[in-house]
Structures are given as C-alpha cells and as structure tokens.
Amino acid sequence: MMDYIMAFIIGGIICAVGQILMDFTPLTPAHVLVLFVTLGAVLSGLGLYQPLVDIAGAGATVPLPGFGHTLVKGVIDEVNKYGLLGVLTGGLRSAAAGITAAVVFGYLMALIFNPKPK
C-alpha cells in the first residue's frame, strides 16, 4: 500500500511543479515537457533520479522526467557493457517499449477515431 501512496505523492508533486511553471511563466505545455525530459536526463546523469525512483516507483517513472531517466539509464548501462557504441544504442533500447507503443498506438487511434469538437 505504501508504494501507491508514495507514487501518488511524488507523482503529484512533479505534476504540480509543471502546473506552476505553466501558470507563472510564459512556458507552453510543450516547453514544459521538453524541459522535464531534459531535466530528468540531467538529474539521472548526476545520479539523483534513481534514488527518487527507489522511493516513489511509478511516481517517478510515469511523469516525463522518468522518460529522460530511462534514456540515460539505458545509455549508461550500455556504455558499461559495450563502451562508446553504447552512447548511441542504450537510450532507445531501454525506452523502446514506450516509444514504439506511442508511435503505433498513436497511429492506430488516429486511424480509428476522429476529433470531437465541443
């Protein structure tokens, strides 16, 4: 049960920070997403994001900084295994499920559904 509560709280805080950025700065949602994914990657590189994942589980991996973290974690793993080539192969390998799902499900949904103006 504790893992759900931690996921809720940490995930909620990350989203609330995003909301503050959108409401108080001229940043658009797209800017916030780009900022968050980059921030997640940098924090992960500094070794600061993994501890958050250990505490919050999905609360840290589901928000977009988690996507940056997944990319960096994959790169570092493969650099350890294969050296320099890992810099290029690790990121997409570890994020493959999310990215492929996004492209394929996104495409399929766009084929099936139409926008509904309100």
Binding site: D3, A7, I10, G11, C15, A16
Partner: peptide, 14 residues
C-alpha cells in the same frame, strides 16, 4: 488539481 490527477495517474501506473 494537477497534484491530485497527476498523483492518481502515477498511482494507477504503480
């Protein structure tokens, strides 16, 4: 609202 809904989505993810 961002906190509650964002938290809920993450809890569902968990």
């Amino acid at each position: 609202m961002a906190f509650l809904v964002g938290g809920l989505i993450c809890a569902i993810g968990q």
